Amino acid sequence: MTKDHSKVFLFLDDEKQPIAELETPIVFNFDTNKIPDGEHILKIVSKSMTGREGIRLINFQVKNGPTISVEGLSENDIVEGSLPLMINAYDKGLPKSFVIEGSETPQTVPVWVWVMIMIILAWSAYYLITEYSNGIF
């Protein structure tokens, strides 16, 4: 009894040579550490024993490098003059370890938080003044 297994060829982006040639079914460890950061296409071409061919394209993005965080400038902003920018770059480190120090990007407190604090403080001051003048305290 012969087994009717298809073969799959994995191509990355527009490469002519496959990165892998496998017989199905297979579990394949796709190491993205060897691929530069950015957008890529994985093209999977299958060929059956009868000669029929199937193709599947999968768009994906590799981001193995350090994460870069910028505060003070966003995509498509219209700006003028001098801008204070807060820039941070941090890496995930080794996946088997977790480091708390430096794991988060420091960020400024949003304006809406300051507004809420001011409203609460103003209401508290108003409440204390009105209650004190009514003789409750």
Rank of each mutant, 00 (worst) to 15 (best):
V8T: 05
F9T: 02
F9H: 08
F11G: 07
F11R: 02
L12Y: 07
D13E: 07
D14T: 11
E15G: 10
E15L: 09
E15A: 14
K16H: 08
Q17T: 07
Q17A: 08
Q17F: 03
I19A: 01
I19F: 00
I19D: 00
A20W: 01
L22F: 04
L22P: 03
L22E: 00
E23C: 04
I26T: 11
F28R: 00
F30A: 02
D31C: 02
T32P: 01
T32H: 03
I35A: 03
P36R: 11
D37R: 05
D37V: 03
G38P: 06
G38Q: 04
G38S: 02
H40D: 05
H40P: 01
L42T: 02
K43Y: 08
I44W: 01
I44D: 01
V45T: 04
S46Y: 03
K47V: 14
M49F: 10
M49C: 06
I55N: 10
R56A: 15
R56S: 13
R56V: 14
I58A: 10
I58K: 14
N59Y: 07
N59E: 12
F60K: 08
Q61C: 12
N64C: 06
T67W: 13
T67E: 15
S69Q: 14
E71W: 01
G72W: 04
G72Q: 01
L73P: 06
E75H: 13
D77Y: 02
I78W: 05
I78G: 00
I78M: 05
E80H: 08
E80I: 06
E80Q: 12
G81N: 03
S82M: 09
L83Y: 01
P84Q: 04
M86I: 06
I87L: 10
N88W: 04
Y90E: 10
Y90S: 08
D91T: 05
K92V: 09
L94H: 13
P95N: 02
S97T: 15
V99M: 11
S103V: 07
E104G: 12
P106Y: 02
P106N: 04
V109Y: 06
P110I: 08
V111A: 13
V111L: 15
V111G: 10
V111Y: 13
W112Y: 15
W112H: 15
V113R: 09
V113H: 10
V113T: 11
W114K: 11
M116V: 13
M116C: 14
M116F: 11
I117K: 08
M118D: 12
M118T: 15
M118K: 10
I119W: 09
I119G: 07
I120G: 02
I120A: 13
I120M: 09
L121C: 06
L121F: 01
A122T: 13
A122H: 06
W123G: 12
W123C: 13
S124C: 06
Y126F: 15
T130G: 06
Y132W: 15
Y132Q: 13
Y132N: 12
S133D: 12
N134G: 11
N134T: 09
G135F: 05
G135Q: 05
I136D: 12
F137R: 10
